[in-house]
């Protein structure tokens, strides 16, 4: 006999992260994905040798925002896992890079999106992962 459906009772289904206010969150993530990636691309293409670590970090941040955007916009469990991973990485990234740049700016001659907890971007990079994690939790099946 076939496996019983894995579906949960109605009402316990995870809510799509891409509906309702989630669309606002995706819009913000998309803008950060665009601006961080574009900025890093220019930095790496035109003056990579000036601050390779900072520019590679900029690029990494851009990729993380792209993955978070894709994860939040998708509807499959795989997308949700991708979103969890990317947003958690983003939180660790902004806290670690933020702390390092506050303690010693010497290693970061050029600002990245996460420098000084995202000061150059109105501290939105610091707030965004908390909202992202809250939204993922709120829309999950167990929530």
């Amino acid at each position: 006999m076939a496996e019983p459906e894995r579906g949960r009772p109605p009402g316990r289904e995870p809510r799509a992260t891409s509906s309702g206010p989630g669309r606002v969150l995706i819009a913000v993530y998309a803008i950060f994905a665009l601006s961080a990636t574009a900025r890093a691309a220019v930095q790496i293409a035109t003056k990579f040798s000036e601050a390779p670590v900072a520019y590679l970090l900029s690029g990494l941040a851009g990729v993380v925002y792209i993955l978070a955007t894709i994860g939040l916009a998708g509807r499959s469990p795989g997308h949700r896992r991708l979103a969890w991973g990317a947003v958690a990485f983003e939180l660790v990234g902004v806290l670690v890079i933020g702390t390092l740049t506050v303690l010693d700016t010497g290693d970061f001659p050029d600002d990245t999106v996460w420098s000084v907890y995202g000061r150059g971007y109105g501290f939105v990079p610091l707030v965004l992962p908390f909202i992202g994690l809250w939204w993922l939790r709120r829309t999950s099946a167990k929530g």
Partner: peptide
């Protein structure tokens, strides 16, 4: 932003447009 905001017609579409305009 306009395309994304109107794809799902809820109250949040306006905020999506606002985010795009601020960006």
């Amino acid at each position: 932003a306009l395309q994304f905001a109107t794809a799902e017609p809820t109250r949040w579409g306006g905020t999506v447009i606002a985010v795009g305009a601020i960006g």
